[in-house]
Simulated scan of single mutants.
Amino acid sequence: MNSTRFEARSVIVTGAASGIGRAAALLFAEEGAKVLVADLNQDGAEETVKTIKAAGGNAVSVAGDLSDPQVVNEVVTTALQSFGSLDVLVNNAGIMDSMAALADVDDAEWERVMRINLTAPFLLTRAALPHMLSAGHGTIVFTASEAGLRGSAAGAAYTASKHGVVGLVKSLAVMYRKQGIRATAIAPGGTQTNILAHSLGAEPDKMSALMNTLVQPQDDAEGAPLGPTVLRDILATNSGRQSTPEEQAAALVFLASDAAVQINGVVLPVDDGWSAV
């Protein structure tokens, strides 16, 4: 461990079995934090913990559905029992939607995306806040999205869920700033993660159809889904270079650090300038 920026601090990172969450968990640990890795994917979570420990760090994992209040309580309780405090919460876990326009979103997709992207971070934040308030300090960082800043980056369900995340960040910042709590978010643009593979129940036929629609030629086939058809050219023109999970994690960890102590209620685009278009 070369840095002590987070020495003696405990951090919960959700969705830390892969992608941005894993990169953030590794970076927090590298900078001295004690890290609880939370993810639905138990094998992936344990692999992240194993990597941290192999480098000399301190980490534990909890596997489960973070929209389940019992799992949420287990995450917070395990962090407190293992590390003695809860200093930073990173609400990163999320899934993509099918890029469907509103009229084409079925109940199951809407409920699943909202449950994982918005209800889960709400539940975990609510469970963590009493401990942070008791300590007189705490930092909460969310992974929002470019889709939380505009209406042209994803389907209706994902876009609504990430706008909800932005609302949580701003409400937290206003309500709790006098109690020593900071809330911020990164808003990633295109990032090289496997979020699509975890979406729609990871159904290969739906994923394949979605990707084919997003990359098909200009003359759309009759009956092509409206959402991907509309979004394809916008995304191709405006979305910029895809980032790596490590680049997103660097911004996330910065927002959690003392270097960002005066930054509160901010949603930081990490998108190669997409939000400036």
Rank of each mutant, 00 (worst) to 15 (best):
L252S: 01
N2M: 15
V165K: 03
V253H: 00
V71C: 09
M1H: 15
H163S: 13
N91Y: 10
L80F: 00
D43Y: 14
A156D: 04
A45Q: 13
T193S: 10
A8C: 13
V141L: 04
S239Y: 11
E30I: 05
P130T: 01
I52E: 01
A221F: 12
I263P: 03
S10E: 02
P245N: 06
A108S: 08
M207E: 13
R232A: 15
T139I: 11
D104K: 06
P269R: 02
H137M: 14
V60G: 00
I195C: 05
L235R: 11
P217E: 01
L214W: 00
S85N: 14
M96F: 09
A260Y: 05
E46D: 15
N238L: 04
A29V: 08
G273T: 06
A45S: 12
T78F: 11
L66R: 03
W110M: 14
L26C: 10
V270Y: 00
E109Y: 02
G57H: 02
G189N: 02
A251S: 11
N58R: 02
S208Q: 09
V215R: 03
P130S: 05
S152Y: 10
N41G: 04
G148N: 04
A79N: 10
K206W: 00
K170C: 09
L210G: 02
S3C: 09
A187D: 11
R5G: 02
V261E: 06
E246M: 12
P269Y: 00
F122Q: 04
R232D: 06
S161W: 07
L40S: 13
V11A: 07
G84H: 12
V166N: 08
A59M: 09
A63I: 05
I116H: 02
M99S: 12
M207R: 08
V62Y: 07
L36S: 03
N92K: 04
L26V: 06
R232W: 08
A17I: 11
G155F: 01
E74V: 07
Q216A: 15
P217M: 02
N212W: 00
A197Q: 15
G189Y: 01
A16Q: 05
G190W: 10
K53H: 09
V267Q: 05
V174N: 12
T139S: 13
T77S: 15
P228R: 12
G148C: 10
A260H: 07
E74D: 09
A202F: 09
A144W: 00
L123Q: 09
V165W: 10
I95T: 05
I234E: 11
P217W: 04
L124E: 08
A249N: 06
V13S: 04
V62I: 12
V71H: 13
L172M: 14
R126P: 00
S171H: 14
K170L: 10
R177N: 10
T237S: 11
L149S: 06
S10F: 04
G21W: 04
V37I: 14
S257A: 11
G240H: 05
A16W: 12
L214M: 14
V174H: 04
A197C: 06
L80K: 07
R150Y: 03
E222K: 11
D233P: 13
L36D: 03
L86D: 00
L226Y: 10
H131I: 12
Q81C: 08
R126S: 13
Y176R: 08
M207N: 06
R232T: 10
A202G: 13
